[in-house]
């Protein structure tokens, strides 16, 4: 690399007294003082959540209100901090969603462990777990910081997903073999 010697400009007398610089600085800070504050005052003002924000992981239901999770436990497997804990369970055959066969008996996400990486959402084959806009999780005890299944569905709500994979399957079952 070529070395380019740059001569340093000697300071003028005024500069060496610091005073013009100090006055300049004071001018800047004074102007700044008269402008409104930039701070967002959090609980009253909320930031606009950008699209694809990764907030608290939640479970969602499909437009028909069926819980989408089939407890395949892939999220539990992929979760780097091991925050997810699922107890799989069987859906009774006579239930409306009996053809899905499997649903979580318990689904716990320990928000003290969760790192909001979004791998659970990425890995989910049923598109049942989403990191949504909720970013503020608080609690007084460790137990409170564990989101159970009910709370996860409450946070997640319903997502307008139009796949209806399992409904199609049920229709095929009722319709029989199309050969």
């Amino acid at each position: 690399m070529a070395v380019i010697p740059v001569s340093r400009k000697p300071l003028s007398f005024a500069e060496r007294t610091y005073i013009p610089q100090i006055l300049g600085g004071l001018k800047i800070t004074f102007k700044r003082m008269l402008k409104p504050a930039e701070t967002m005052e959090y609980p009253e003002q909320r930031p606009e959540i950008p699209k694809h924000y990764r907030g608290v992981p939640t479970l969602v239901k499909d437009p028909n209100g069926r819980e989408k999770c089939v407890s395949c436990q892939l999220c539990e497997f992929v979760c780097p901090p091991k925050a997810i804990r699922i107890t799989p369970g069987e859906i009774p055959l006579d239930a409306p969603t009996g053809h899905v066969e499997k649903a979580p008996q318990a689904f716990d996400i320990d928000m003290l462990r969760c790192i909001y990486c979004g791998l659970c959402q990425e890995v989910c084959p049923e598109e049942a777990i989403f990191l949504q806009n909720q970013y503020s999780m608080t609690g007084y005890t460790r137990a409170e910081m564990v989101n159970h299944k009910d709370r996860l569905y409450e946070l997640g709500g319903t997502l307008p997903d139009q796949h209806h994979k399992w409904d199609k399957k049920k229709a095929a079952e009722e319709h029989g073999n199309a050969h």
Partner: peptide, 9 residues
């Protein structure tokens, strides 16, 4: 063993 646990765990 039905729906008890995934084998990879």
């Amino acid at each position: 063993f039905r729906f008890k646990m995934r084998v990879w765990f």
